[in-house]
Amino acid sequence: MNLFRFLGDTAHLASILVLIHKMHTTKSCRGISFKTQALYVAVFVTRYLDLFYRWVSLYNFFMKLFFIGSSCYILFLMKTKFRPTQDPAIDTFRIEYLLGPCTVIALIFNYKFSPTEILWSFSIFLESVAILPQLFLLQRTGEAETITTHYLAALGIYRALYIPNWIYRYFTEGVVDPIAITAGLVQTGLYIDFFYVYVTKVLQGQKFELPA
């Protein structure tokens, strides 16, 4: 564990709390892609199967439980309490285009051709693109509530902080995880456009609006 990773995980945790807070305070899940949230459940469940057979640390254990539990809770809220505020008509990204390629790539690139390792690789690749339905929705509506942009910013910061974490681990532990690094760089890259608008508009007190 190093500071970058810890802060990254904290940002990840914060992003989820911001999202849940947004839904409860605005009593709405408007602007949130159900598809992205469903993909995150798939990501966490396939990645954290090792909860059943490997102990890493207390921190690791509780974070995994939190990520699985909170992502399921978000889906539950979106399908029950706040269902009327959800608009499937604008959440139209075809997730088959993500699930298919991620499956194929996971079967090719993995550290061991075993079910759990393939699922681990799959979860890494899927996480890297799981935000696309959300960004696509944002692109379609052209604007977002400020709190939603804070959620996305926290997610982006989490990903960005994993990069110095890998650099640090390379120099201090000699650890290199090519699958996580490649997927992580792709994932972080997807946030660049969003961050540009977030920094130049939202942080200046303006509404998040994409140029027409």
Binding site: R47, V56, N60, K64, F67, W120, G174, V176, P178
Partner: peptide
């Protein structure tokens, strides 16, 4: 070294 055993990152 490639970490082939045990993924300790979240």
């Amino acid at each position: 070294e490639t970490s082939t055993e045990g993924h300790d990152e979240l």
